[in-house]
């Protein structure tokens, strides 16, 4: 297959397949979760569950002081990783083009050079995360092959995108193709791994926040 044919395939049919699996898988997971239901809480509420749920969806993005003082590196690194991913995915103009095509809305991007630098930081943070996973006794103990898999499928698009932009190792066209293919891999893998947390965290926070909100406790 010619390189360009591969690129055309990656941008066309392959993307379709990956997107279809992603959408299908995520919906399936959502149904699986919601179908299990939740008993109505009959205790007299002290506060609002809805307010608590909504609040927790946001507030859980900030670390507790107690945790931050114990694990500053892990928390800062987590921020770098997630903010980095956000910037790289959503604030890079060529990516915004894609979203515009998909959702019909567009927004401001960042200078490509900035995104490039953020990508480098994000890649670094992934490696720091890996080192922590390997060297921290708790993480080493609870980590499963799936955790390393999602690490890898998150890393690949970042590295290939970075290398394509900076003309490293392989020609741009091939790298761009690999970049697109790696994103497709991510899309395919996401619904069936812990990457589901990209959506389900909202549910998790909502449920805990709702419970806490009814009790009038912080969460």
């Amino acid at each position: 297959m010619e390189l360009n044919e591969l690129l055309i395939w990656a941008r066309g049919p392959a993307f379709n397949i990956a997107l279809a699996i992603f959408v299908f898988g995520m919906l399936l997971r959502l149904f699986e979760i919601l179908s299990l239901g939740r008993k109505e809480d009959l205790s007299a509420a002290r506060g609002s569950g809805v307010a608590g749920g909504l609040r927790t969806i946001l507030s859980r993005s900030l670390p507790r002081q107690t945790l931050f003082s114990r694990e500053p590196l892990r928390i800062i690194n987590g921020y770098l990783l997630h903010i980095g991913l956000f910037v790289v995915i959503f604030l890079y103009r060529p990516h915004i083009e894609l979203f515009e095509r998909l959702f019909g809305v567009s927004w401001m991007g960042l200078p490509t050079g900035v995104v490039d630098a953020v990508t480098a930081v994000t890649i670094l943070s992934l490696f720091v995360a890996l080192l922590i996973r390997i060297y921290n006794p708790v993480l080493r103990f609870i980590s499963t092959p799936g955790d390393y898999l999602i690490w890898l499928v998150t890393l690949l698009p970042l590295v290939s995108g970075y290398m394509a932009y900076n003309h490293l190792l392989l020609g741009y066209t091939l790298m761009l193709t690999l970049h697109i293919l790696s994103v497709e891999l991510l899309l395919i893998v996401a619904p069936f791994t812990k990457l589901t947390h990209m959506f389900s965290f909202v549910l998790a926070r909502w449920y805990q926040g709702y419970l806490a909100g009814r009790r009038g406790v912080e969460s």
């Binding site: 979760i33 993480l139 609870i142 812990k194 947390h197 998790a204």
Partner: peptide
Amino acid sequence: QIDAPVASFFSSCIHCGLCAEACLFY
């Protein structure tokens, strides 16, 4: 005992291990 919240919790846990740091038994 497994309900939607539990399913969402297991779907979301990314094995960050931070819960250990909050638990006095750890």
